[in-house]
Amino acid sequence: MSHPVARNLLRDSVLLVLLILTGFVMSRLSPDFLTSANLLETTRHFVEVGLISLAMTFIILSAGIDLSVGSNVALCAVMLGQACAFWRWNVWGAAALALGIGTCAGAFNGVLIAKLRLPPLVVTFITWQTFRGIAEGVSKGNAVSSFPASFAVLGQHSVGGVPTQFLIFIVACVVSYIALSRTQWGRFVYAIGNNEAAARLSGVPVDRVKILLYALSGFMSACAAVILVSRVSTARSDMGDGYELDAITAVVLGGTNIAGGEGGIIGTILGLLIVSAVRNGLSLANTQTGNYPNELQAVIIGVLLIAAVWLGRRVQK
């Protein structure tokens, strides 16, 4: 089991079995779990974190980290609300502005990391605070809720019974998968994560790839923000709190090595689905018996994470 592709395949198979097992247990705990209505509705709750986890997979593969994503969501959401409510912009124009701002905020992280050679943990920890600070300052803590009804199409409507945002997520998954496994750019990401110095020597444009990675992460945060605002018809500066940890959870549970170089998109998607199934299933079971409160869900996800990291280590040997 030395070849990375074979290791990925093994890891993803284990995760798939784990997901099926989780689904089985949850359907035992609550008869409402394994219904198409519930499963489709549940997708609405993980798409925002899901989009961010896709970008986070790239970044962790390159041996980086982006802690600022949740705050970036707040920043983009607040700017969207400001433009729409106070500058009287068309809501789609405001959404485009939010995407632009999110991407720039991400690129800003990238420039500091690539050009100034600052550690990603430090840079994004600082912007984690700064972005939210700006969001709070701009909104002055006030929520904006005056969005036109047509804006709900992204977060509250369905296309052929499937939530709109889930379709967007599927497209994002396919694009991410292809970009990572079928393009030169994807190979660059792995190369940087495995050995940055060696990658640099063999001609990989390390700085450019890194800036692009963090800009992409910012773009995904902005997409998440637009969908989230559409879903709850509200823009607030406390949105996206903790998303960075939810995204990292999905990536690590998905078997991507936190030190970079190994893992992939499919693992992240499976990780995301497992976390979501546990949360949704236990929540439903809790309604029936009262035995599975929120607190327990956090513990079970923690146990799953430890198991995933331990298993990942085993597979690598």
Partner: peptide, 10 residues
């Protein structure tokens, strides 16, 4: 919202 959605399902 997530918690209330689950209650609606049930």
């Amino acid at each position: 919202i997530r918690i209330i959605d689950n209650w609606i399902t049930q």
